[in-house]
Nucleic acid binder design. Structure first.
Length: 430
DNA sequence: TCTGGGGTCCTAGGACCC
DNA sequence: TCTGGGGTCCTAGGACCC
């Protein structure tokens, strides 16, 4: 969608919700205005903290009991995804009043490319951005912080500059001043590893990085790093992507259990639970995976995984049991303590158009489909934990489906890997 | 800050093929 | 089978993000 001038330089704004989850609660429940509020009750950990709560030192990631101790009057709420996503939709809509080129980057963040719309609205870019900010405030009763610049990376730095309800512009004239003391790993898409690498070359700030000669940057970084460098220098290489909801490419479920366990069947049961949950999610999306991967996380944060390609896509737990067990048996090391398991579905097909294997009896497939439709319905009505698979399923159908030679193919690959043990991001909810 | 959960993209190197 | 040189495809693993 490019009926807007493509000429350079661009005018890109980044809109970032302030304590979004908590703010939405305060907007919906006026009696919470001005009070310290956190969300994350389901996990006993602070997911989002209102600014009133932050004043007491309550931050994301803090244990709930600890947060309550720090802030006696704290209001603790469960996360309400439904309401939050309604608010984010409305936020995007307000932005689209000024330009159709809006990227719904995450539930509480969006980019808008305003290049060229100055004339249409007979307003300066700055005025447009402030107006977006005001309309969000007025209509949604929440505040956002906004940044305006010539590239996405700079716009993101700008929106973070002043919070909450901040407005920051980074023009090419202000750029050097803004970047001078800006830490490397605060730059979007520069993580701890890249920051460390750059520091090894004596580069310590965003400006120092931006000022490196291109050749050097190309020598030490890969494509994304070079692109960040370009964006920092005011060259917009990442377009604002309007693409409506890019469809999901993988579905995963993972759960950490405390304390870690070495009990084989316990760990296996955890893995199966993840598989079942991934199946539920896949069916909700009307998707069926063609590849299934599992991994076990050891106590020392190493993770071991394996992937299997299925003969045909399926999101039915019974059909995945055998293949999961096989992978698990190869991964599990007796005596090893594990702290988490996970299941990842890839190559998601639309479950409505899944082709039946030629040798499969149509009747079985149909029976299975009905069974799981009923299961999903029950869960819808009585909650997630109303129905459980595995053991309780009729042994007959299990045998029928898993003993067929043409079901899961035998292609097993070993995935090994170490999860990076460096600084991990704080617990986030988005 | 010693570690939750759900994602995406990039790349080096191997496999395989003329 | 001591050997070139190129091309494509695939994948495990790294890095980052919210």
């Amino acid at each position: 969608m490019t009926y807007i001038s493509n000429s350079w330089p661009r005018a890109i704004a980044h809109v970032d919700g302030d304590a979004f989850f908590a703010s939405v609660e305060q907007a919906v429940k006026p009696y919470l205005k001005g009070r310290p509020v956190v969300t994350g009750k389901e996990r006993n950990i602070v997911a989002a903290a209102s600014y009133e709560a932050r004043a007491f030192g309550v931050k994301r990631g803090v244990a709930l009991w600890e947060a309550k101790k720090m802030c006696p009057g704290l209001v603790v709420l469960p996360t309400d995804y439904e309401t939050v996503s309604i608010f984010s939709q409305r936020m995007y809509e307000i932005m689209r009043r000024y330009s159709p080129v809006v990227e719904e980057y995450s539930v509480d963040e969006a980019f808008v490319d305003l290049t060229g719309v100055r004339r249409v609205h007979r307003m300066k870019y700055e005025a447009i951005v402030r107006q977006i900010q005001q309309e969000i405030h007025r209509e949604l009763n929440i505040t956002v912080s906004v940044g305006l610049s010539v590239s996405k990376v700079l716009a993101k730095i700008a929106s973070k500059w002043q919070k909450p309800a901040g407005f920051t512009r980074i023009s090419m004239y202000e750029r050097e001043d803004r970047l001078r003391d800006y830490p490397l790993d605060n730059i979007w898409n520069i993580g701890p590893n890249t920051a460390g690498l750059l520091q090894g070359h004596g580069i310590r700030t965003a400006l120092a990085f931006a000022n490196q000669p291109r050749g050097l940057v190309e020598d030490i970084l890969t494509k994304p790093g070079v692109e960040v460098w370009q964006e920092l220098n005011g060259e917009s290489v990442w377009p604002v992507e309007t693409g409506l909801k890019q469809k999901v490419k993988s579905i995963s479920k993972t759960k950490t259990f405390t304390p870690p366990s070495g009990d084989k069947e316990y760990v296996y049961a955890q893995l199966i639970k993840n598989m079942e949950n991934a199946c539920i999610k896949a069916r909700r999306y009307k998707r069926a995976p063609k590849t299934v991967a599992v991994f076990l996380k050891e106590q020392n944060y190493r993770s071991l995984g394996m992937e299997t390609k299925l003969a045909r896509p399926t999101a039915w737990p019974v059909e995945l049991m055998e293949v999961i067990r096989k992978m698990f048996d190869q991964l599990y090391v007796p005596g090893q303590q594990y702290r988490a398991t996970g299941c990842i579905f890839g190559e998601l097909n639309s479950s409505e158009t899944v082709q039946m294997s030629l040798f499969e009896r149509r009747g079985n497939v149909e029976k299975m489909r009905r069974l799981y439709m009923a299961v999903d319905e029950l869960k819808e009505k009585y909650g997630k934990h109303a129905v459980h698979q595995c053991v309780s399923l009729p042994a007959q159908s299990v045998q029928h489906l898993t003993s067929r030679g043409d079901m899961p193919s035998r292609k097993l690959k070993l995935i090994t890997g170490e999860t990076s043990r460096r600084r991990l991001p704080l617990p986030m909810l988005e």
